[in-house]
Design a protein around this nucleic acid. Sequence first.
RNA 1: GGGGAGAUUCCAGAGCGGCCAAAUGGGACGGACUGUAAAUCCGUUGUCGUAUGACUUCGAAGGUUCGAAUCCUUCUCUCCCCA
Length: 439
Amino acid sequence: MNFIEELRWRGMLHDYTPGVEEFLNQNKPVAGYIGFDPTAASLHVGNLATIMLLVHFQRCGHKPYVLVGGATGMIGDPSGKSAERQFLDQATLLQNQVAIAAQLRRFLDFENGANKAEMLNNYDWFKNIGFLQFLREAGKYITVNYMMAKESVKKRLETGISFTEFSYQLLQGYDFYYLYKTIGMRLQMGGADQWGNITTGTELIRRKLAHERGLTDISKEQAQEAFALTAPLLTKADGSKFGKSEGGNIWLDPTLTSPYKFYQFWLNTADEDAPRLIRVFTLLDRATIEKLEAEHAAAPHLRILQKAIAEEVTVRVHGRTAYEKAVQASAILFGNATTEALNSIDEDTLLSVFEGVTQVQVPAESLQSNIVDFLSVVTRNEIFSSKSEARKMIQGGGVSINKIKIHENMQLSEFQLLQNRYLLVQKGKKNYYLVRVSA
RNA sequence: GGGGAGAUUCCAGAGCGGCCAAAUGGGACGGACUGUAAAUCCGUUGUCGUAUGACUUCGAAGGUUCGAAUCCUUCUCUCCCCA
């Protein structure tokens, strides 16, 4: 398989330095990597898109390296940031590194073959480099003029950028150089926003090599030794940011974004976005995708594309069992389930379906209160923050209990407790709360 | 340095003494339709609430008035034009 060709038809190719394609075709396996800074406790779906670059890279017979930015995470990448960032403390950084490394392990094959994936951490080499040494080994070869021309820096020139963040590209560039020297790393990939940082690396390598070889003229004559390749940043047809939902980021960590919500995120992909996303996030081949698209076009309401994306991605990230539960939960919550249907599921399933859904515990006698009080003050304002808010939405027809739409003067005793202790409260179409009544 | 315009509820933007909790549009949220979509239509959108109710809002602080987002004074900030 031709890596570049594969990325091209999938719409995952944004930019690359000249000669990559030939180089990749003539040398197998090529060592390539992507870096992830431990800025959060988990990777999110945006990172998943770049992870897919590595997945394809490995499938095409090349050797993928995953770099966890233990050092760069301490500095802060100014790319795409309009303001200086706060440092994370050591403990958090370390925790994040461990968590992210564990997540990355599941996407690539780290076990088999000559091109098995490897994990790196740039803290391992940066911890031993002194400031003076760094200035002499890296800083000397890149001009400030060059660094200031980068978009990430240029945008911040007006508002201010610290020397620390300004230096970021040099650190990332040095990574590439270091890896080139030690393990023959030839390609760095990333999202389009990383282009500037990556090319600082290829530039540093070019200049360092010229210097080492005693060349005075660093011209075009010199063959490319290291390459950059980026994937387009994902956008949505409606202009909103990809990878966010009402609740914020969609994380890969199941404790931050439940598999159910994760599955729902993909299932809710807009028709216009689905063809692009299915190419990026699934490994389905071209013929299969085109067939699915045709089927989708014939019967859009079945949302064949969305289901295919949701299945592949959820299974890859959370496993088949979690995926099946998410499907089951969705069927219950969005199908025209009745109280009977709700009551027919056993407690374990019920609880796993509502994993990640807000739960409120109330004493049995609270069922005596009127419905407005119950949904606001009695449930400690978890569902509605005030009585008037509860009343307004009930009057607007936006509240259901056990899938039955309620009105203001209903009694709670009219509702059957699921498993003798639960009430399922639904606010709007997609917000669920499980109220647990203690005996 | 001189002259002018302005600051209104999440945003844009009306209002220029009582009928103003403040038009209209956007956004957000809810409903109908549908495919858990798009488009469309309807409702809600200061807080508490159900009382032709109370309380807090119109850059800030004072003042005039029975009554101020609206008038006056001072202050703070923004924008434009001329030098």
